[in-house]
Computed example of a mutant assay.
Amino acid sequence: MTRQNFVVSSDGKSMVNALIPLWDLCNHEQGRLSTDFLPEKDHSECLAWRRFSRGEQIFIFYENLHDTLAVRLGISHADPLGDKKRALLNTLVLPCSGEFLLHAGPEPVDAKFRAFLRIFSMSEEQLDHWLAKQEGSKDLEHNDCALDSELESKAWTFLKTRVTLLLASYNSSLQDDELLLQSRSINSYKRLAVQQRAAEKKILHETLIYAQQKLLQ
């Protein structure tokens, strides 16, 4: 799942997943994107963005570790458990509604977002248990916090559903954007906008995979 490269299909009408020998073995290093698919030559090309010494491992840049996507979430005033959820969120100095960030890379959900998802999904009994712990509620931010499997399932199912809806709200797919970026006919302003949109979708796709993996644990 970590090696999904989009190249133009044989009929030139879509983007398809491909494995690229050797290039697929390269590790990541912060730098700048220097890999592209050249339709006129029908191959992918990767340019070195810095000088490498003989015998040195060759790295490629394939994700900006600082990319984030804001997702707005909140506790509904119609939620019968809203007061207890807000009280527990307050103990962790977390907002009851607002924007939470999804991060690029294999760990898109940070500690604060993880705790919010768990509290959002709690039953009244679970809320009472964690409210009684006071400072122990900080454990809700930990990836390996001991929680009921049903609660974890509800939290990650909620995130999976939310991300799926966000992806469905776009008028194009990530594959469509990748294909459009191969075109030499779009101007620099549109290219920048499409790159931004594609980066958002990539983070959402990574989050979807992350949530699915959590549900399998």
Rank of each mutant, 00 (worst) to 15 (best):
S14I: 00
L65F: 15
E29M: 11
S137K: 06
L117D: 03
A18W: 05
R118T: 04
S97E: 14
R32Q: 11
L131H: 12
A111V: 00
W49N: 14
F52T: 05
R114P: 03
C46H: 13
L131M: 13
I75R: 02
A111C: 04
D83W: 06
L33Q: 10
S34M: 11
L88Q: 02
D139H: 01
A132Q: 13
S34E: 15
A111R: 15
L101Q: 11
L92N: 10
G98W: 03
R86Q: 09
V8N: 02
R72F: 05
K133L: 15
E56A: 13
T91H: 11
K133T: 13
F113C: 07
W23I: 04
L38F: 08
N27G: 10
T68Q: 10
C26V: 12
A115I: 01
L19V: 10
E40A: 13
A115G: 03
T35E: 15
P21R: 01
P39S: 04
H66T: 01
F61C: 14
V93D: 14
L88T: 00
Q126N: 09
V93I: 05
E107R: 10
V7Q: 01
C26A: 15
F59G: 07
L73M: 15
A132W: 10
Q30L: 05
L25D: 12
P106Q: 11
S121T: 02
D36W: 00
F120S: 01
G74L: 03
Q30K: 11
F100Y: 14
R54V: 10
L19G: 12
D11C: 02
L47Q: 10
G105H: 14
E56L: 06
T35G: 15
F59E: 11
F116A: 05
P106T: 04
M122N: 09
T91V: 05
Q134Y: 03
R51V: 12
R54K: 09
A78P: 00
L140F: 10
A115T: 01
H77W: 01
G98T: 03
L38Y: 08
W49V: 04
N17F: 09
F120G: 00
T68A: 06
L81M: 08
F113L: 08
F116E: 06
P21S: 05
R50S: 09
R118D: 11
D83S: 13
L73C: 12
C46V: 06
I20C: 08
C96D: 15
R54I: 06
Q134C: 06
F37M: 07
R72M: 02
L127T: 07
D83L: 09
L25N: 07
L25P: 00
R51H: 11
E63W: 08
H28V: 00
V8G: 01
L89N: 04
K138I: 02
W23P: 02
L88S: 01
H66P: 00
V7R: 03
C26H: 13
R72P: 02
F59I: 02
W130Q: 01
E99R: 05
L25F: 08
L88D: 04
G55M: 09
F59K: 05
S76Y: 06
G74R: 06
L38C: 07
W23D: 13
Q57K: 11
K138S: 12
A111P: 05
P21G: 07
H103K: 14
G105I: 03
L65G: 15
D110V: 02
A18Y: 07
S10T: 06
A18N: 06
L81Q: 11
L25M: 05
C26Y: 14
S14R: 10
L117G: 06
S137C: 15
M122C: 10
F6G: 08
D139T: 01
A115F: 07
